[in-house]
Write a protein that binds this DNA or RNA. Sequence first.
DNA 1: CGATTGAAGGTGCGTGCGCACGCATAGAAT
DNA 2: ATTCTATGCGTGCGCACGCACCTTCAATCG
Lengths: 158, 158
Amino acid sequence: MRTHKSYAVGMPDRDDAGVAAWAALLRTHAAVLRELEGDMERAQNMPLTWYDVLLELNAAPERKLRMQELGERAVVSRSRVSRIVDELARAGLVVREKDETDRRGSWAVLTPAGRDRLRKAAPGYLDGIARHFADHLTPEERSTITGALDRVLAAHRR
Amino acid sequence: MRTHKSYAVGMPDRDDAGVAAWAALLRTHAAVLRELEGDMERAQNMPLTWYDVLLELNAAPERKLRMQELGERAVVSRSRVSRIVDELARAGLVVREKDETDRRGSWAVLTPAGRDRLRKAAPGYLDGIARHFADHLTPEERSTITGALDRVLAAHRR
DNA sequence: CGATTGAAGGTGCGTGCGCACGCATAGAAT
DNA sequence: ATTCTATGCGTGCGCACGCACCTTCAATCG
């Protein structure tokens, strides 16, 4: 594996460990996402981003979320979410609903069809993550990674 | 942090740990890359992908690499690398050189100017990784992450 | 040898994405 | 009330990216 090579550009490599970890994350992201996306498209005929949004809606109270909230929780940007919700609405998996008390606001509400579609897709999704990613990790590694990266994320929440 | 929430869609959450780790990786990638890219653009006026390619070339014997090799080592696709090398060539940081013995082949060779530019950019790059990512990790976490993800990557090398 | 297979590299093309902006509306200030 | 500031959302736009394909050439096999 080449990600361990020293890429020092003539300077002491004090932080090589950090760079190596980042490089590994970068490459893993690219490799796994590529496979996962392909699997999902083939088996569920559903982009990963759709699944992501449906998942957040399903986990939300009353299965609905304001666009802004959705933008913060999903991996993609808020503007992107706006378009994805459009697509989901066209597919009947979600309905848009305007907020009555704040007329700027807009809700995305999961439909029964959307919930159904999510249930159908879930096994394939979980299986993909397991095969392409999680199965290659020990339980300790899983929890270390989650804990460590969540700490990084927390630092970015400002 | 919400990445820990159970997203189970009505099924046992046997693999929640794996999913949580993947979710954390996904979000960390998005958050850190965004900052890093911005920093690099602002401070070094250089896209991250340029840096990536220059780095690989600098680490290669004679500071040159076949396009294919470069495509495998870099994070982006081979076709993308082809265009990036074009840009680097236009900026004088790299020259294209055709292989004499295999006339299909093409080399990307780092120029002195390219090496110089890389040296100039390196501190900012390393600093960015440290601030946005590595500083939030313990040494143990760094090495665990690197080792674990490299194993995942190895599994994908086929 | 000539034909076939397959590798290396570049390019046309579609598309997913985020940024910057604009519009509508809410809430604060005066 | 009126004006001003801030917030929620959608959208025009440009860009980076990967895929599929094409061309060029090497190598293998008859």
